[in-house]
Structures are given as C-alpha cells and as structure tokens.
C-alpha cells in the first residue's frame, strides 16, 4: 500500500505532539508502559512514558475493546421489571499497537460484527483510534511471521509508526489517520524512509526462532483428535486459564446477574471466561462435556488453530502471550509441531 499513499516523518517530539493532540481532541490515550518486568497498555499523556521498544504487554489491547468485565444493562424489579442500557463509551486512542495485536483486533472486529452485531464492542470500537507500531525486535516467543500476521502489516490501523533509526515513519491507514497527520504539519517522508522500514522488516524476519504455519493446521488437528499429544500435554496443564485470558483473539464470556442488597435492582454483567476452566462447559444437573482436562486443552488449541466455532476469528496471531504466561511452559507451537509429525 505504501507507495500510493502519503507518507510522513517525525521525531520523538513529534510523537509527543501526536499524543497531546489526541488528548486535546478528547481521546483517552493508552500506550505500552513498562512497570516492573512487564509492559501494560496504560493511560499516557506523553511519549516519554511509553517504551517504544517493548515486546508484548501482559494483556492485549483487547482489554479496552472487550473488557474483562462490563455491564450489559441495569434492571429494576418493580412491577415486573424495567431495563436500561448503558451510555456510549468515551473515545480511546491506542498508541503503539504491534502488528499481531492489530490483526487480532481486526479479527475481533469481524467477529463482533457478525449478525447480530455486538453493540457494546462495536460502540467502543467506533470510538477507538488505533496507532500501530512496527516492532523493533522479536523475542524467542514471537511467531507472527509464520502466522502471516506480522511483522509487516498493511491494515488495521489509522496510523502506523515505524522507528527507522534516525526518525519515525508515519503511514496513514485511514482517512482519519491521514487527516490527523496533516493537521500536525508533519513533513512528507522520502523513499529512504520506506527503504529503511523494509530493511528493518527483513532483519526482523530473520530473527524469528518460533514458527507455527497455518497451512492445513486446522484440518490436520481436527483429524487427530486422538493424538497422544493432547493427553500428554494435559498432564502438565494447570487449567488456570492464563493462556486464554491473555490471548488477543479469545472472546468467550460468561454472563451473570448481580442483584443489589435491596433485592430490587441490579446489573447483568459479562465477564471474560476461559474454556480451560471446568465450569465453562458445565450443563444442567452437573453434566460436563469437557470434564477431562485434555478435552479443554484440546478445545482451546483447536480454537487457536482455527478449528473451533470461532474459525479464523479466534485463531492464533502468534503474539506468544500464552507461552510466556503458561506456568507449566506449555507451548502450542510445539503441540502443532507434534501434530505435524515432528518431535
């Protein structure tokens, strides 16, 4: 896409102006901030708070679009009941989203846009501006390259920032992004900026050590439901749910009512859920179709391979979070490798 559209360049101070501009335009801006040994998307007011060399945040930016817990509506129980819905969300700008997470947001966008549309997600999404950031490094748990979700990305952002060494290349990805870049008076970038970006991408591509190619994986996994890898891996699995809770494409949620202590009013809440939890697939009278740990582990991995009900929408983008945050060091790329006949 690069060639056809206008490209801009700036320096660190320019990125700071971009953030200030967004804030003065009414956006709450979130960016990757390092705290302790981890990164988090936190509210920022300056680029100085941001670590532009970050690898991955604990939770993906999904937390701001499909939050871990949200109110669906309030209700009052009087004569029968009345239901009131929640107000519209505030405008959010996500600053510094990596390609894997951009792809994940695109998939969630499509998933929640299916009929009937999810009004909560979409209302929030429509009020969200996304500023992508090309990665500057790849760690041992990154595998977007083999998933086709990075390190190069051409959609899913309003603006894409790339650190090209002596400055930042800014590529608009939407009319809104272009308008914003123009309004900040950034200078147009020459071809050398694009060339530098290409060079960075090529370098990044060479540094991937983990791979999980998509080709045929869903079909293969579905044909190997009895493979020993499921039960073997499940012996280590703690069913803690961390893999799915940090996953940028996991969307499953629970719904429950919270009644006030007056027993007259309350809220219906949805809360992020995990198919790794025993209670997830429980049915009436204590029945459970995924009572065994291996069934739950297999269901989640099938889902990430694109073979569950979510299809491509919930499939893996290679961000590596599930591997990093698995206390039992379970690695779905290794499981995929075993299914393909390796190891």
């Amino acid at each position: 896409m690069g060639g056809a559209s206008q490209l801009f360049k700036t320096d660190l101070e320019g990125l700071d102006r971009l953030i200030r501009k967004l804030r003065s335009g009414g956006y709450v801006v979130y960016g990757p901030v390092k705290q302790g040994r981890s990164w988090f998307f936190l509210e920022i007011d300056s680029v100085k708070q941001v670590d532009l060399n970050y690898v991955r945040t604990v939770l993906p930016p999904k937390k701001l679009l499909h939050p871990p817990r949200e109110k669906l509506f309030e209700f009052k129980l009087d004569d029968g009941f009345e239901v009131s819905e929640k107000p519209t969300p505030s405008a959010v700008a996500l600053f510094g989203v990596h390609p894997c997470d951009l792809k994940a947001i695109e998939r969630q966008d499509e998933f929640f846009s299916q009929t009937p549309e999810d009004p909560y997600y979409l209302a929030r999404r429509r009020n969200t501006l996304i500023i992508g950031l090309t990665c500057t490094r790849v760690d041992e748990n990154c595998f977007c390259l083999s998933r086709g979700t990075g390190p190069e990305v051409s959609t899913g952002f309003d603006i894409l920032i790339t650190d090209v060494g002596n400055g930042y290349l800014l590529e608009p990805g939407s009319a809104k992004g272009l308008e914003l870049l123009k309004s900040l008076g950034f200078q147009e970038a020459g071809d050398e900026y694009l060339e530098a970006k290409q060079k960075l991408i090529e370098e990044l591509k060479k540094s991937f050590t983990k791979h999980m190619p998509s080709e045929g994986l869903a079909e293969l996994a579905k044909s190997l439901l009895d493979h020993e890898v499921w039960k073997e891996t499940a012996e280590r699995c703690l069913s803690c749910g961390n893999c799915s809770l940090v996953c940028p494409t996991c969307y499953c949620f629970d719904v429950y009512d919270v009644l006030e202590l007056n027993l007259r009013s309350g809220v219906r809440v949805r809360e992020l859920d995990s198919c790794q939890l025993l209670e997830y697939a429980e049915v009436a009278l204590g029945g459970n179709f995924r009572r065994n740990r291996f069934q739950r582990l297999r269901h989640w991995m099938l889902c990430k391979f694109g073979a569950a009900g979510g299809g491509l929408y919930s499939s893996c983008v290679g961000c590596g979070r599930c591997i990093v945050y698995c206390p039992a060091s379970i690695d779905l790329t290794e499981v995929a490798g075993r299914l393909r006949g390796g190891g």
């Binding site: 705290q35 981890s38 209670e279």
Partner: peptide
Amino acid sequence: RLRQHPVCVECKFYENECLLTT
C-alpha cells in the same frame, strides 16, 4: 454464585504481573 475457578482468572482481570512465571 461462588466460582471455583483459580485465582489466576481474577489476577489476569487486574492485569497483575505474573509472580509465578515472570
């Protein structure tokens, strides 16, 4: 409604650093 799932679930909702893995 007294859920019996692990503390990790709530811990992730609060986006704490993982004390065990990190």
